[in-house]
Design a protein around this nucleic acid. Structure first.
Lengths: 294, 294
DNA sequence: CAGGAGCTATCAGTTTTGCTGACAGGTTGG
DNA sequence: CCAACCTGTCAGCAAAACTGATAGCTCCTG
C-alpha cells in the first residue's frame, strides 16, 4: 500500500478526530472503510498504529512518533498540488527580477518575502546590474520584472508601476577643500562653480533639468561610481539618501543643505516590465504587493 | 486525482525513461495505462505535461519546472515509508544519548552523523551531564545509551562497549610557583609533595591506584571542575589530553613530562547501556559504528 | 522512398481495489 | 442494565484503473 496520499490523509484524520468514526465523518466515508484502511496499513507495516482496547482507538507510541513526519509529507504533497494548479492559473515557475545597482532593494525584498509565503515553491532569481544592463535584459526577456529608476524615457515598449521616490541629497566628501575654508555653501548657487558629478549615461539622459547645476560636470553611469568619485574629492553630487546614509553617519561624506531648495530632487523608482512579455501570476502579485495593495 | 503516490512515480518514470512505453516497461504496466494516466493528470492540472508532436514525448517547460518538486515529494514519501518499516524492525523513534561532560564527544558525533544518513527521520537527543547523573539517567531509562568513563565498577546492571582510551597528562597552571623556581619537576616523584587535584566522587572511586600520587589530595567530581582548580593554582592534576589541548596551546596550562612515566595513564571511554532496556536498532548500529565495524 | 520498428492514443472488456451497508460485538456512562 | 457509540467483519457493489487489440503517427535505415 506504500503510504499513498489517501492513507496519509486517513491516518491524520483519525489522529485529529480521535476515532475511526469521527474520521469517517470528516472524510465522508463509512466507518468500516476507515477501519479497514487502518487495518491494511497496520498489516503492511507490521505493527499496530492504534490500541483498540478502549472504546476509542488510542494511537500507539509508534503512531505518535510517525505523525509529525506523516504530516510533513502531507504538507509537501498539498504544496506540490497547489503549485501545480497555480502553474495552470498562470504562475511562472521561475521569477527573475532585475534590480538596478543603485536602487534600494528593501521594499522589494519585503514584498518578495510575502510572495514566497503565498507560493512556497516559486523559484526567484535576483539579478543586480546597472540600469542600462537591466533594461537590456528586460528587452531580451531574460528577466520579467525590474526595479529601476523611472521617468527616464517614455517608450511604448515598457510598462511600469511607480513604487517609491528616492530623495536625492547634495553630498560632498568630508575632506573637500570647500568645507575646509569654513565657508560651507549655504545656497545652491554656491555650488555652480564647483565641479559636479552627474549620473547619466548615453542611453539614459538626465532625468531632470534641475539635476545639473554646476557649470563643470563630470559624468558617471551609476551612483556607485559617482559616489566613489565624490569620495575621492573630485566634486559634489546628488545621491539617494538611503545609499549614503551610512557614509554620512560615519562622517566620510557631508550632506549639503541649502536655504533655497527645501523640496529636494526626487528620483522615482519604478517596477518595469516588457509589454511584449506578459507578466506571470507571481510577477503580477508582486506588483500589487509593491503598490501596497494587500 | 490529486498527486497520489502512483502518479508521482509514473510522472518521474516517464521523465527518467524518456517515453511512455519505457516508463511502462519499468513499471511493469502496459503503455496505454501510462498514456491514460498522464492524460488524466494533464486534464486535472489543466495543461500539457508532455509535447507529443514528436515520436517520443518531450516534457513541457512546466513539467520540467515541476520535476524537482515532484522528486522531492517522492523522496519524502519513500523516506517516510522506510522509516515506518524500520520502526517495525526495531528502530526506536527517538534515540536519547547521554554524554559525560568531560568525555570528548567527537567520535560519537561522527558516528551519529553516519547514523542519521542511514535513518534520516530518526530523532536524536543529546544530554550532557556529569558521570553520576548520566548513570542515573541510564538506570531510570531516560537515556538509552551513554558515552562515559569506563572501567569504574563491574555491575551486572550495565552492558558496555570499549570505545577509546583517553590519555591523561599531568598538568599544572602556567603561573604555579613550582614552575617559577626554574626547578620544574623532572620526575613523577617530584610531585609527591605538591597538592594533587584528583577526579573522583562518592559513587565513582578512583579508577586506578596509580592515579593518586601526591600525599595531599583535593577532590573534584569532574575534570571540568578539577581543571578550574588547577587553573586557579590550587595544585596539579591529570587530565584528558583533548580536554586541555587548547589551554596548553594558549599557554594557560603547562604539561609536565617525566622521565620515568612514558606510558601515561589511560582512562577508557565506554558506550554504556542498561541491560534492562534492550537497545533499539539505531542504538545497536551506533554501537557498531563506534566499534569501527562500519 | 519504402518499410519496419517503435511510439502514442483510443476503446471495449476485465480485473482490482476499495467503498457500502447491514450486522455483530465491545465499551462507556447514566 | 440500557442507550449510545464505537470497531470489525462480510457479502455485494461501484468506480477506478489496467489490459490487449488496433490504428495512426514518427523516425530510422537500407
Amino acid at each position: 500500500m506504500h503510504f499513498t496520499r489517501d492513507n496519509i490523509e486517513l491516518f491524520l484524520a483519525v489522529l485529529d478526530h480521535g476515532s475511526f468514526s469521527a474520521a469517517a465523518r470528516a472524510l465522508r466515508r463509512v466507518p468500516s472503510a476507515v477501519s479497514m484502511a487502518v487495518a491494511n496499513m497496520e498489516a503492511e507495516l507490521g505493527y499496530a498504529l492504534f490500541d483498540r482496547s478502549r472504546r476509542e482507538p488510542v494511537p500507539t507510541d509508534r503512531a505518535l512518533a510517525l505523525a509529525p513526519h506523516v504530516r510533513a509529507a502531507q504538507d509537501q504533497l498539498t504544496q506540490l498540488h497547489n503549485h501545480a494548479l497555480a502553474l495552470s492559473r498562470g504562475l511562472e515557475s521561475r521569477l527573475t527580477i532585475g534590480i538596478v545597482t543603485d536602487v534600494n532593494p528593501q521594499a522589494l525584498l519585503r514584498a518578495v518575502n510575502l510572495l514566497s509565503r503565498r507560493y512556497p515553491l516559486l523559484e526567484v532569481e535576483m539579478i543586480q546590474a546597472p540600469q542600462d544592463d537591466i533594461l537590456h535584459l528586460l528587452q531580451q526577456q531574460h528577466i520579467s520584472l525590474a526595479l529601476a529608476w523611472g521617468g527616464l524615457r517614455v517608450d511604448s515598449q515598457w510598462q511600469f508601476q511607480w513604487v517609491d521616490d528616492e530623495a536625492l541629497v547634495a553630498t560632498l566628501a568630508a575632506d573637500h577643500p570647500l568645507l575646509a575654508k569654513k565657508a560651507a555653501p549655504r545656497w545652491l548657487e554656491d555650488l555652480i562653480q564647483v565641479r559636479q558629478i552627474v549620473v547619466a549615461s548615453r542611453s539614459r539622459p538626465l532625468a531632470d533639468a534641475r539635476a545639473k547645476v554646476a557649470t563643470s560636470c563630470w559624468y558617471a553611469d551609476s551612483f556607485a561610481m559617482a559616489l566613489e568619485m565624490v569620495r575621492a574629492g573630485l566634486g559634489w553630487g546628488n545621491f539617494p539618501q538611503t545609499l549614503i546614509a551610512e557614509r554620512l553617519a560615519r562622517g566620510e561624506l557631508v550632506r549639503l543643505r541649502f536655504g533655497n531648495t527645501e523640496n529636494a530632487l526626487r528620483l522615482p523608482v519604478h517596477l518595469v516590465w516588457n509589454k511584449a512579455q506578459p507578466l506571470g501570476q507571481g510577477a503580477r502579485e508582486l506588483v500589487a504587493l509593491m503598490r501596497g495593495g494587500e
